[in-house]
Amino acid sequence: MKTKHVLLIALVSALLVMSPAWAPQDGKRDIQAMLVRIINNVETKAPTKAFTKAINFQQLKAGYEVRTAAKSVAVIKFVDNSKLVVRERSIAEIKGQVQGREILDRQVHMTKGNIKFEVTKGPKEQFRFTSPISVASIRGTSGTWGQGDSTSTYVMLTGLLNLLNLVSNRSEDLSGGQTGITDAAGNIIVRQSTEEEQNDAEKNEEQEERTRRTIRITGEDKDGKVRTVILEWEE
């Protein structure tokens, strides 16, 4: 009987100790986003699964990856209306948690590619772009992020961004009209953007780019006259 009591007390104690783990982590949930537009070949990957073809208005959650092929674009929107345009040949992973009406943490991790971002100004929420060499913290900002094998490049259209190099632990602030480049050697360079960089950052790729193709077929009509039929189509 005594042993039973001890076991019972131990069980209750264990349950009490473990109880925080059962709780829904104070209402914490995975961040939610949506693919509101896909152009050409876009794939998504849920955690522990393989890439599959993406469809319009597919939901994305923490741990999902989005991959775009050549001439392909994916437009992702978050619940606060923040928008990411994942440009061609990019792989981006979404991470983050929300609690109630607050975004606790939101990250996009990219090892290679290019993203155009328009982040909604929020009272507290921050957006972080991470790569193996850098972390950018932004709030209410628009611009582009290009990630290569050894460099991260940010071209800012509006707002502020803090760029941290994970190798040297150096950080710099960027504002509208500036370009920041950081590399695997730990350097950070901040300078005024060139016109070409700004134009590229402003470029709207949310509409499909199609290639116009033409075939000319030369033959004779019923009267024996030479005629050329021109076939044009887009793909």
Partner: peptide, 15 residues
């Protein structure tokens, strides 16, 4: 585009 139309409403900040 007609084939890309979707209406999405976020209630994340709704009380």
């Amino acid at each position: 585009a007609i084939e890309g139309l979707g209406i999405v409403i976020s209630f994340f900040y709704a009380p």
